[in-house]
């Protein structure tokens, strides 16, 4: 344990603390499980990210100094230290997607969402990110929607998919 003497994290965020403890005990507290733990902790977050408190909890519970935890959390594309929308739209702009005119899909997404790539919608519903090639070039142009590959995109298909997301959110 690497718990600072005067840490009140556990008292202040008991739920988060318990959740992280459970994830750490599933994977094990050794350093090589840090990335797996962070991915799991993030997946439990409603805003799809690693909050400062979550990083501190991981640090305390795994006994890894928080600077190291933060370094890892900020290094990888799949981990985010900033809140993200309920729907994470990651558009590939790799070579194969580029030759299949992903630019039209990007324009359609920006129009449909009303934000530029790199931003989030004010209602917190969507985050639209760039992502490097994720190996779905056979169905390019492609994006990941909350991690799932959606390929052979066209501007029409974008309209439909985003509409479905909005509907799903409304019906919740």
């Amino acid at each position: 344990m690497n718990k600072p003497l005067n840490s009140k994290l556990q008292e202040q965020h008991p739920e988060l603390y318990a959740q992280v403890s459970e994830i750490v005990s599933k994977w094990g507290a050794s350093r090589d499980n840090l990335i797996a733990v962070l991915l799991d902790v993030q997946s439990k977050s409603k805003q799809n990210y690693l909050s400062k408190e979550a990083l501190l909890a991981v640090s305390e519970i795994m006994g890894i100094i928080v600077q190291d935890v933060y370094e890892v959390a900020s290094f990888y594309h799949a981990l985010s230290t900033r809140p993200r929308g309920k729907f994470l739209v990651q558009l590939c702009q790799g070579t194969s997607c580029t030759v299949n005119k992903v630019v039209n899909v990007k324009t359609a997404l920006e129009a449909e969402l009303g934000i530029m790539i790199g931003g989030s919608t004010p209602d917190g519903l969507f985050t639209f990110e760039y992502t490097p090639c994720f190996g779905a070039c056979d169905v390019s142009p492609a994006m990941r929607l909350n991690g799932k590959v959606v390929g052979n995109l066209t501007p029409e298909k974008i309209k439909q998919i985003i509409g479905e997301c909005r509907e799903a959110a409304e019906n919740e």
């Binding site: 350093r31 499980n33 990335i35 991915l39 290094f75 990888y76 594309h77 799949a78 992502t131 490097p132």
Partner: peptide, 21 residues
């Protein structure tokens, strides 16, 4: 992995496997 092309490089792959950047 957690999304980083450079981790395909052999020694970066090891760093990542050990839970580091």
């Amino acid at each position: 992995g957690a999304g980083a092309y450079v981790c395909g490089e052999s020694s970066a792959l090891l760093e990542s496997t050990e839970g580091k950047a």
